[in-house]
Design a protein around this nucleic acid. Structure first.
Lengths: 115, 115
DNA sequence: TCATTATATAAGCACATGCTTATATACGCA
DNA sequence: TGCGTATATAAGCATGTGCTTATATAATGA
């Protein structure tokens, strides 16, 4: 994977700052595999629900992720239309796979799959 | 360029946070081309000398850059031994070339070349 | 309609960050 | 040795960040 379009420095700095948080970085790495809902992230990170919500909001405000309601759950996914999606994916690419976190959830019966 | 070794999430977050500042990100992109001394950065960024010094210190403390004195000037360079150098270079790779900043300095006769 | 569950948002707080000003240190040169 | 230039460092301050607690909103199901 090779980013084609150059990413302006200002934009890159903003993106990297967003990614420069362990929770958000991990969230994105997970979302690169599968969509997730808020309560799954709460389980995964052993964090409070507002804390998770606030991280997701930052990612959403910046355009990196999208949300879509499914019943009572709000699912988040990487925004495929995001202008710098390729860049973000490249940055994520070097990180270790986080799929095991979802597997763990599954084993605990805490994975939300609906509709 | 493709990062071979996976970068642990914690480390990646710390690195990306460091890069998530426009001044430091630009510094690194410049250093990817050529070594620079503090006073050149001061010119380039129209910033105060302590401010530049403090950014460079963060990069040095994290291991991304090295310093070496040449006469009265302190030159900074990318640390070739840095464990995650490939990762950093990959992140920088997508950014527009900043060589023109050095060219500008040169034209103003403000480029420091010594020894 | 009401209780439950999932989520978002607001307010407050502790701590981090990046700048400024002031000062110390180091080198080169007369 | 003393001055000018380059750099580092310390202290102070305004602002940003990420958490917490408290509360509001939304959907589900009895």
């Amino acid at each position: 994977m090779k980013v084609k379009k150059a990413v302006e420095l200002d934009k890159a700095a903003v993106i990297l700052k967003l990614l420069g948080d362990k929770t958000r970085l991990t969230m994105l790495k997970i979302l690169a595999c599968e969509d997730c809902c808020v309560c799954e992230f709460v389980e995964i990170f052993h964090a409070s629900q507002p804390s998770i919500s606030q991280h997701l909001r930052k990612l959403k405000d910046a355009g990196l992720v999208r949300e879509s309601r499914k019943g009572q759950w709000m699912f988040y996914s990487l925004n495929k239309e995001y202008e710098y999606k390729d860049y973000v994916l490249e940055v994520l690419d070097a990180l270790p796979d986080q799929r095991y976190r979802l597997t763990e959830l599954e084993e605990q019966g805490k994975r939300i799959s609906c509709c």
